[in-house]
Design a binder for these strands. Sequence first.
RNA 1: CGGGGUGUGGCGCAAUGGUUAGCGCGCUGGCAUGGGGUGCCAGAGGUUGCGGGUUCGAGUCCCGCCACCCCGACCA
Length: 472
Amino acid sequence: MIEEKRKNLSDWYLDVLQKADIFDYGPARGTIIFKPYGYALWENIQFYLDKFIKEKIGAQNVYFPLFIPESLLKKEKEHLEGFSPEVAVVTYAGGSELEEKLIVRPTSETIIYDAFSRWIKSYRDLPLIINQWCNVVRWEKRPFPFLRNTEFLWQEGHGAHYDHDDSLKTVFEALDCYIRIYQDYLGIFGYAGQKSESEKFAGALKTFTYEILIPDGRALQGCTSHDLGQNFSIPFGIKFQDKDMSLKYVWQNSWGFSTRSLGAIFLVHGDELGLVLPPKVAPYQLVIVPIYDGKNDSQIDEFCNIIYRKLKEKIRVFLDNREETPGYKFNDWDLKGVPFRLEIGQQELNNKILTFYRRDKRERFKMELDKFVDSFENLIEEFTQNLLERSKKLTLENTYEVENYNEFKKIMEEKRGFLKAFWCEDKNCELKIKEETKATTRCLPLTNEEKDGKCIYCGRKAKSQWIFAQAY
RNA sequence: CGGGGUGUGGCGCAAUGGUUAGCGCGCUGGCAUGGGGUGCCAGAGGUUGCGGGUUCGAGUCCCGCCACCCCGACCA
């Protein structure tokens, strides 16, 4: 809908990602292999997010087991019901049937909170905030690389707090970290907000999210941060003795950010030449392409090597001296989405002014090497902002404030996108809208101000405009 | 699980029931080229998804199975 050249976004995506050496399919359905170039991207995101999690949220990293005894998963009813359709279960191991089945974790609330119940005894033990980087397995009906893998990588953070306010503070700190990663590092705009009752995490009081518009008009849930209230602490018996000697249950939260974010990067920024990777997390921030002429090849090589050594200290750089034509390499690096390129040939040999190229604008520019190195931080900041602006523009241009249901249906049929509409917050209206238009509530934006309105579906009184879209 | 589709070198495809299953991309070796997917030469690479059946003869026809893909319900 939005970009002519990406009419078939799914084909474009699968084709480009495989050509760009991001991933390969795994042998089991719904699994993928992260190839070095794809995995490096995740490692770089991890680097920044991990720092945020430790410094801004105050969490410590841990690692819990992959297997969860079935009895633990059963302790919280809503959680169990939410996840049981998509869990993988080990029933046979070591040559015989297991006495108790083992769940391959779809998320780790239960196994972590079982430990919390033993670790937390006193108000002095609070808050307890931990985080783990791990894989989880969810048997999705229809897998799609990065956006819905059977197995995916993420971090999941878990906080146990003295009271609800303290827990909520962490809920919003986590959400804020995710928004900062998406906006300041990945250049991806979205709507931060609260999930509806039916869309929230199984077992949570409230779920907060960052909803991203994909150029085909559908919405991607970019992360989640849950206010768990005391829904888990009560069944798991996570209680502490307070100063006044009374026993109290902790207030909890959990929050996660996954490799789905890579899918968002590819889909939101990519163009007809291929990927456009945000420079702060791109595996290579710059690639040097030597352009040989058959006469001065050794001098060009030497010159490239000097520049390479100099850039290497501050920039993730790759020197591409493969035996391919320059045109081939240009296209290859455009496809792989490397943010900057430096072209070194006869013209540059005895010259201080070098030829650079930036992927987002597809423009060449001339600059002295030292100046480039000195202004690199600013350049990647500006590059990221440019991506964010584009993404924001796309999102705003495809956000429609609608007041009658026919218009709503028409937009969903013709172009999709985000639809902002009053909703009475009755589940039945939400369900009917989904059945009739495929759109579900994505979130109630945090910036929402309550006012008088009428539900887009039933016409009854409504106080807030929700964001609707077709979910990815 | 429902609806549709496809299985042939690594990938994309071709092959009226009839010799030794072809082509493009990619890969290997070589020569030239080199500022936006360059050209030529020489190579390597196959139990046609699996199992039956029909036939003088099956990639091709029939039956069964399996796998994967697309569309829906589920979903970070």
